[in-house]
Structures are given as structure tokens and as C-alpha cells.
Measured scan of single mutants.
Amino acid sequence: RPMNAFMVWARIHRPALAKANPAANNAEISVQLGLEWNKLSEEQKKPYYDEAQKIKE
């Protein structure tokens, strides 16, 4: 299954978030990633939607 825009973004940002929160488990990191993603504007998300579309094609 191809990655969606959030997954493209999260793949880039997960390592830094995990390093900054070494005690957090994957579920907690995923929740935090979701919160951070939701704070982004549509303009900030656009490159990730574009990349996800390329992956689908």
C-alpha cells in the first residue's frame, strides 16, 4: 500500500522525535507525530501530498 502524505512526512520526522523522547514508545511517538502534523498548514503539507501522489503513480 503506498504511503499517504502523513506517512511521507512522518518517515522524515520520526527519528528526530524518537531521539528527543527516548523514553517514548512507538505508539506515543505516533500520537505526537499526529499532533505535530495537524498543526501544519495546508501549504506546509502540500509537498508531502505531492510526494504521496508521485508514489501512487
Rank of each mutant, 00 (worst) to 15 (best):
N26R: 07
N25Y: 03
E51D: 05
Q44S: 08
A16R: 12
N26G: 11
E42D: 15
R1C: 09
N4C: 09
A5P: 05
R14A: 12
I12H: 07
Q53E: 13
P22R: 03
D50G: 04
L17T: 04
A20D: 08
N38L: 12
K46T: 06
L17M: 11
Q44D: 12
A10H: 02
P47V: 07
S41Q: 02
S30W: 15
H13I: 06
E43I: 12
I12P: 01
E57R: 03
Y48G: 00
V31R: 13
I12F: 05
W9S: 00
K19P: 02
K19Y: 07
E57Y: 06
E42K: 14
E43R: 10
Y48N: 01
L33S: 00
F6M: 04
K19I: 09
H13T: 09
I55R: 05
F6G: 00
N38T: 08
S30L: 10
A18N: 05
Q32I: 15
E42H: 12
K56W: 15
W37A: 00
E28F: 09
M7W: 10
Y49F: 12
Q44Y: 04
E28D: 10
I29R: 02
E28W: 15
A52Q: 03
Y49Q: 05
P2W: 11
G34P: 02
I29S: 00
I29K: 01
E57M: 06
K45N: 01
L40N: 01
W37P: 00
M3C: 09
A18F: 08
Y48M: 01
E43C: 05
A24E: 02
I29W: 02
A10V: 11
D50H: 11
N4H: 08
N26V: 06
W9E: 00
I55P: 05
I12Q: 06
Q44P: 00
L17Y: 15
E43T: 09
P2I: 09
W37S: 00
R11P: 02
E43F: 09
A52N: 02
Q32H: 04
R1Q: 13
N26C: 08
N21Q: 07
Q53S: 10
H13Q: 07
A16S: 10
L17F: 15
R14W: 07
N26W: 13
M3S: 09
S30V: 11
E42A: 14
K54R: 14
I12V: 09
K45C: 01
D50K: 12
N38I: 10
K54F: 09
D50N: 07
K39G: 05
Q32R: 06
A23I: 07
I29D: 01
P47N: 03
A16G: 08
A5H: 02
V8I: 15
N25V: 03
A52K: 02
V31C: 07
D50T: 08
Q44W: 03
N25H: 06
Y48K: 01
A20I: 08
E36H: 10
P15L: 07
P15V: 13
V31S: 07
Q32V: 11
Y48H: 02
E57V: 09
W37K: 00
W9M: 00
R11G: 11
S30T: 13
K54Y: 08
K54P: 05
A5D: 01
K45W: 01
A18K: 15
K39E: 04
N38E: 12
W37T: 00
A27Q: 12
M7I: 13
A5K: 00
A20K: 11
H13C: 05
K56G: 06
R11M: 12
K54H: 10
N4G: 07
A24Y: 12
